[in-house]
Amino acid sequence: MLVEMIFAGFGGQGIMTLGMTLAYAGMIEDKNVAWIPSYGPEMRGGTANCNVIISDDVIGSPTTDTPGAVMVMNLPSFHKFEPKIKPGGTLIVNSSLISDVSKRDDIKSFYLDTAGVAKELGNLVFAGMVALGGLNEAMNLVKTESLEMALKKLLPEHRHKLIPLNVEALGRGAALVKNGS
């Protein structure tokens, strides 16, 4: 198994933490993982992004130009990364903020109304988790329990009361993908 992913969106959408959560969960499942924030020219153009790699083997390059999966939370990210996805790869689109649709037929695309679900859960901050749940379902990466454990490690103690809602957001995202959004 070798999955190279890019997470991208506006600064403030929690992109970095979402990537870290997935990397941590992968580590909990004894996989090799690497997370790296956007660097150099990638930092420009209204997107914050990170690369996450999960692998059974020792990880080589920590960055990728040909990701197997991309999760985009805003429009500039969509334009920047959608064309880079490897044929056969997966695209998760935050359709609450992105109205464009991929014209590629060599990738699987999912359009998730993350904000809609997050609002139902009572707070927009859960939008990212909805998307992550969708990505995890589409790629079959890690168990939800591993993501929950990762959140326990990554979130400060006083935020732990939010973990159940985060887990619910993950599940709602996964359900959207399962139902073919």
Binding site: M20, A23, M27, N32, V33, A34, W35, I36, P37, Y39, I59, P62, T63
Partner: peptide, 10 residues
């Protein structure tokens, strides 16, 4: 370098 310093791994 910047990559090894900034990246996260186990």
């Amino acid at each position: 370098d910047g990559v090894i310093g900034q990246m996260m791994e186990p």
